[in-house]
Write a protein that binds this DNA or RNA. Structure first.
Lengths: 130, 130
DNA sequence: CAGCATCCATTCAGATACTG
DNA sequence: CAGTATCTGAATGGATGCTG
């Protein structure tokens, strides 16, 4: 996206940013960064579960039964890589791993709230309405 | 996603929802709804352009030169379908069509702002930060 | 000018099967 | 328990070419 400098007046979603004239998707754009973290099916649900408290792999699987191991694994890696959550491994057998949001991850709360708010306000019960 | 009942005081589609049990992605979830609107490469950039003011097809192409006709066309259809923008066609030749955000579309401003804020706060200059 | 139709390369997610 | 490896079908999105 690379949103930036929408000028100054409006909120368009972009504060006054030094860089201007970004005319194509840019991974360094804050908006892109955030969307990249949330991208992918199941991602926000996984985050939601973790916002309730730390979980193990199995607990997440139980909370989201239709989510395959592979995708869950992918999501956890993606979120870990993004610094949104941390993995606590405990040695020994059987293995136990706890997943926990970092402060950065908890910071996604307001973001999800904003997404929720818009969706809730503009799509009450009926689908599309002019 | 299917984040539930934020109720009133609680966080996002986060935990604490009585009607829990939403255990898989649900198109009716407000969070899903919003992400569906913003989904796809170039989408937020197109919205950003329109937040600056109404545009014609060509103006958008010029503002985003690397965006192909097909994808621009797709995005405009997607956003129009979502009720986020309207198309004003002017009869005659040559054709002229103006695209303008609806109030609903302008409501995306705060959403983009939230996305921007998180990205800007958590990814200052360096890529990954603990 | 504004745009749709086609073709193709890439990405993604679900299913299945197998380890540390 | 907590994952990874592999495969496949579906969904992108970019390039190119044509029309109302």
């Amino acid at each position: 996206m690379a949103h930036q400098t929408v000028g100054h007046a409006v909120r368009p979603g972009l504060p006054d940013d030094p860089s201007a004239a970004v005319t194509e998707p840019d991974p360094a754009c804050p908006v892109e960064i955030t969307l990249a973290v949330l991208r992918g099916r199941w991602t926000t649900l996984v985050v939601r579960e973790l916002l309730r408290g730390e979980c193990t792999f199995t607990e997440l699987r139980e909370a989201l039964p239709a989510l395959s191991d592979k995708v869950l694994s992918d999501r956890l890696a993606q979120l870990t890589q993004a610094g949104v959550l941390i993995r606590h491994r405990r040695p020994g057998w059987p293995p136990r791993t706890r997943y926990q949001l970092t402060p950065k991850g908890r910071g996604l709360g307001p973001v999800l709230q904003a997404l929720w708010d818009w969706g809730a306000e503009h799509h009450p019960p009926s689908p599309e309405r002019p």
